[in-house]
């Protein structure tokens, strides 16, 4: 049987995911993805409960146990230098990145 995730589909996914893989790594990961799909395909044979309701997570949060939204109030961060200190390249408190590729919208 042909693998559902072909080299072409795989390469497309790798590009979308902003990854680069060497040949050995790509071969291993593509094989694992196709093996995982065999397990995932079990889902297709499950007789679904028509009344099953999709939820954000298992526990149903009623309004009584849900947190109220926080007030939308701007708060200054107490130590912005600590945040800037984590940035790999910074110049005059601005984050430095390489050129941003230009795209012309049609």
């Amino acid at each position: 049987m042909t693998d559902p995730i072909t080299p072409d589909i795989f390469n497309h996914l790798v590009a979308l995911a902003a990854l680069e893989l060497d040949e050995k790594e790509a071969e291993y990961i593509r094989r694992q993805l196709n093996n995982q799909l065999k397990a995932i395909r079990e889902l297709e044979a499950i007789p679904l409960d028509a009344e099953a309701e999709i939820t954000l997570h298992g526990v149903r949060f009623s309004p009584q146990i849900s947190q109220p939204p926080r007030a939308d109030v701007w708060q200054p961060y107490p130590a912005p230098e600590e945040i800037l200190g984590q940035v790999p390249e910074v110049e005059e408190r601005l984050v430095v990145v390489p050129d941003i590729p230009h795209t012309t919208l049609e």
């Binding site: 795989f10 996914l13 790798v14 995911a17 902003a18 990854l19 680069e20 893989l21 790594e25 291993y28 990961i29 694992q32 993805l33 995982q36 990145v97 390489p98 050129d99 941003i100 590729p101």
Partner: peptide
């Protein structure tokens, strides 16, 4: 070469195989 290339190279070197598998799946 550019920002997208920075993402690709950084993520390729920074992530091990398990995060890469999860992202792609």
């Amino acid at each position: 070469a550019d920002l997208r290339d920075l993402y690709r190279k950084t993520r390729a070197e920074g992530f091990g195989p398990q995060p890469k598998l999860r992202i792609l799946m």
